[in-house]
């Protein structure tokens, strides 16, 4: 915990999203907020750009809103950022060969647990 706190602390602890950044159109702003919560502030520790007070997070929030204003769909706006910052910018790792283990192993763990339990009761029958 401590190191996490210290790491957070070294980012400038300014307020996160500022009222002046928000879009006038509430529907567009709501989309921007939802998307911003899924994007990692790449210089912070596991904070979304919506939560972070770092300068870079603000830049990314502004770029994201500029894309939405220009008429991008959610997918296009996310693609814009992953093209520049990589999958690293997504807090939810995308499903691709390199993350198959990550996404499928939990089900595998559950299956192994069930098999072990089954075996345990079989042996005792």
């Amino acid at each position: 915990m401590l190191a996490f706190l210290l790491a957070l602390a070294s980012a400038p602890a300014m307020a996160a999203l500022d009222a002046s950044e928000m879009l006038a159109d509430p529907a567009l702003e709501a989309r921007a907020r939802t998307l911003a919560k899924t994007l990692r502030c790449v210089v912070c520790q596991n904070q979304s750009i919506d939560d972070s007070g770092a300068d870079l997070a603000r830049d990314l929030r502004q770029s994201l809103r500029a894309r939405l204003l220009a008429g991008d769909s959610d997918e296009e706006a996310l693609a814009y950022l992953t093209h520049r910052y990589g999958d690293y910018v997504l807090l939810e790792p995308p499903l691709k060969p390199a993350t198959w283990v990550l996404w499928f192993a939990p089900a595998g763990f559950a299956a192994i647990a069930a098999l072990l339990a089954l075996r345990y009761f079989r042996r005792r029958e």
Binding site: D55, L56, R84
Partner: peptide
């Protein structure tokens, strides 16, 4: 000045 090109280049610092 406002870091917009920085975003295009994916600059983090």
């Amino acid at each position: 000045e406002d870091g917009r090109a920085g975003v295009e280049w994916g600059v983090t610092g």
